[in-house]
């Protein structure tokens, strides 16, 4: 379990969804994340850029049948930051119960 730490980069609703979609996976296609979030390519790119700048997400491009596919995945730092953020959210919820 990671140290609970609130992360304002991850906490933004769309970025939180991106991280939680990627967390249980090795990688996921850009299109799928976009459809799950219900946002445009440019909006998703903007959020991915912010996560990339923080070193949390990386992109991998692959050409399949002449079509370019972009895959996204959480880096080790990103995974730790996400786990820490989730731990902090859980701590806040638990603290309010007791």
């Amino acid at each position: 379990m990671n140290t609970p730490q609130f992360n304002s980069i991850i906490h933004a609703p769309n970025r939180l969804q991106i991280c939680s979609l990627l967390a249980p996976l090795e990688d996921a296609e850009f299109q799928l994340i976009r459809d799950q979030l219900g946002v445009s390519d440019s909006v998703l790119s903007k959020h991915i850029k912010q996560l990339e700048d923080a070193g949390y997400v990386m992109q991998r491009k692959e050409k399949v049948n002449g079509r370019q596919r972009t895959w996204l995945y959480l880096t080790k730092i990103g995974r730790n930051a996400f786990e820490g953020h989730v731990a902090e959210l859980m701590r806040i919820v638990e603290a309010s119960v007791f």
């Binding site: 730490q5 304002s8 991850i10 906490h11 979609l21 996976l25 799950q36 309010s96």
Partner: peptide, 26 residues
């Protein structure tokens, strides 16, 4: 990311629910 941000338990609960939904979907 080190900036301490105050959020209440209700907001944290909503965020955790959203995380569970997304992870399940993945």
């Amino acid at each position: 990311n080190d900036k301490k941000t105050e959020i209440n338990s209700k907001e944290a609960n909503i965020a955790l629910e959203s995380i569970r939904r997304s992870e399940k979907s993945s």
